[in-house]
């Protein structure tokens, strides 16, 4: 049972992008309101009742957040894509449980994070973690390249971020997920405890150890 904690990512509101599955036609609910104006709780209720449009809207609302967490934990596009798809398919399979949970976002993040950790453990065992940009399709790499402002800036930033990513890769999966959720995604310790279904003290301990390891790895390199 998920503990009643504030909706995670309060500082990072859900994406309000409308569903583009049917471009040009904004879906309306039974009250004539666009589905992107409907709150998450209502959408979840409709989804549990079997409304596929509500599910499509939930995907559109949370897919970026799930992708962000997964890509930062796993470090490559292909695995992040797998996490995004598998998370929502698992949510669909377990939709009856959604009636009992307090916060959809926590449940979703828990499913995504746990799947990411499992995948990371699997990848570490097979030692086949891909490079974060080389694993992206060519057109996406071009999109990333277009964001370059000056070659010098990009090089410095890239080196720093590569070092950070490299150091993150060396952390055990759970510690990596904890530091990504806390320091990168901005989740509180209470929210992370709820996501991992563990005491806050465990989160504090994991965070402390992970930060100490990162400092040690990155010592005098930043």
């Amino acid at each position: 049972m998920i503990k009643p904690v504030p909706e995670p990512g309060a500082g990072k509101p859900d994406s309000t992008e409308p569903s583009k599955l049917n471009p040009g036609s904004k879906e309306l609910d039974s009250n004539g309101l666009a589905t992107d104006k409907v709150d998450t709780k209502t959408l979840v209720s409709r989804f549990v009742e079997g409304n596929d449009q509500a599910f499509a809207e939930l995907i559109a609302r949370f897919r970026r957040r799930i992708y962000g967490i997964a890509s930062r934990i796993l470090g490559n596009h292909l695995d992040a894509d797998e996490v995004v798809q598998e998370t929502f398919v698992r949510i669909y399979k377990r939709r009856k449980e959604l009636q009992k949970i307090s916060y959809f976002s926590t449940f979703l993040t828990r499913v995504a994070t746990n799947y990411s950790i499992d995948l990371l453990r699997k990848r570490k065992n097979s030692s086949s973690v891909g490079d974060d940009t080389t694993s992206l399709p060519g057109d996406i790499q071009l999109d990333l390249a277009r964001k370059v402002e000056t070659p010098g800036q990009v090089l410095d930033n890239k080196r720093t971020m590569d070092r950070i990513r490299g150091a993150l890769e060396k952390l055990p999966p759970k510690q990596k997920a904890t530091i990504v959720l806390h320091d990168v995604e901005g989740y509180t310790k209470e929210e992370i405890a709820s996501i991992f279904d563990c005491p806050q003290a465990t989160v504090r301990s994991n965070l402390h150890i992970a930060r100490a390891k990162l400092r040690k790895i990155l010592k005098s390199r930043l």
């Binding site: 930062r72 992040a80 992206l136 950070i164």
Partner: peptide, 12 residues
């Protein structure tokens, strides 16, 4: 630097 760690943006 962790806070600035960019997420990959695969596009819409």
């Amino acid at each position: 630097n962790l806070e600035k760690l960019p997420a990959q943006e695969p596009g819409e």
